[in-house]
Nucleic acid binder design. Structure first.
Lengths: 192, 192
DNA sequence: GTCAATTTACTGACCGTCCGGTAAGTTTTT
DNA sequence: AAAAACTTACCGGACGGTCAGTAAATTGAC
């Protein structure tokens, strides 16, 4: 039982790396299998098809980030503090993990419509919705202006987006002053 | 001469629409030709290969936006005004054109390395560089804090990024208060 | 504890389809 | 007539995906 599903985990990691680098449609199953030095059919033993592999990567990461956000931004503080912790939580993730957030929003159109709809709901439930909830809470506590929470969540996410690209100069380490700057810019903008 | 290159123009428009919708690697030459009701080979009469078609779309739009920015944000005003006009200029573009900015940053990794490098330079020269120049000017005029202009340009662009996706609710019309809000958030954040 | 039966975790060969791209011929414009 | 603007027919190869087979691990009857 100790080493069970070792290959499955390696497939998830390597495929995530490659999809982030060159996009879902830019990577073939053959390339993934060759990178792992296994047969292509081995991928299909662990995942029904290519789309299932992508979905496993995305939903797996969404689960991770949901847990982290629930732990780091519980609704027991003021909304400002919670937003600061949310941004910090995201940038505490290594760039290769963070980049999966970009992969998700980028590759949603690549999913077949059934999977697309259900994944879109999950993405909102486990990630975007958390941001919107904090913003809504801040408005009700009169910490923030009565803004459009959906749009505000997009804008906050958008500010971070450039730092979800795998590139050394965009790899902000925890504590980088730019993270602080981004948070301040946004919070000052929406503060009541 | 009147109708010269009529098909070429239609190819550029239809391919842009499809690439924006499903990505460069998600659209085949056959699909583009079928959408235009011409043969696939007709595309190859006007464009050397698929990559040349993508590059023509991207560089064509970069040329457009460069002209617009040079006209609307000349270096004869304060940096704040120029940035306001820059954001307005972008949102004066119809969503389907704006979305090409996203296409560019998204599909740069899909280009073969030679084209990738030269296009990356062009992208900087005609677009990102303009934003950085205004920011640099604002810093020198002591309008803005002495920030990292490259990162600040990314953040400004990032804030707009969610509105570069083709979706009705993200289609900000010129004059939408959200545009004003975005600009204010950013400018307040970097103002000296 | 042994050993046959079954399940797990793969491999190698192969499938039909679609891909980007081309060569040669045909129609249309000048 | 000749150049421009296509179409038709085709190519080799890569694509996602499947299938039969198998070595190794696990299980269960005795």
């Amino acid at each position: 039982m100790r080493e069970k599903n070792l290959l499955k985990q390696r497939i998830l990691e390597e495929a995530a790396r490659l999809f982030v680098e060159r996009g879902y449609n830019g990577i073939s199953m053959r390339e993934i299998s060759e990178a792992l030095k296994v047969s292509k059919a081995a991928l299909y033993y662990h995942f029904k098809d290519k789309e299932a592999l992508l979905l496993a990567i995305l939903t797996g990461y969404l689960g991770e980030i949901e847990t982290l956000l629930d732990v780091n931004c519980p609704p027991v503080q003021d909304a400002r503090t919670r937003l600061v912790h949310l941004v910090e939580t995201i940038f505490n993730q290594p760039l290769e993990r963070r980049a999966i957030i970009r992969l998700a929003s980028q590759e949603i159109p690549s999913l077949r419509s059934e999977a697309r709809q259900s994944f879109h709901a999950l993405y909102h439930q486990k990630f975007i919705g958390k941001i919107e909830a904090i913003l809504q809470d801040g408005i009700e506590r009169a910490e923030f202006k009565p803004i459009n929470v959906q749009a505000a969540a997009w804008i906050l996410l958008g500010m971070m987006y450039p730092f979800f690209y795998a590139s050394p100069e965009r790899d902000l380490q925890p504590g980088d002053p730019l993270i602080y700057m981004m948070t301040e810019i946004f919070l000052n903008g929406i503060a009541q």
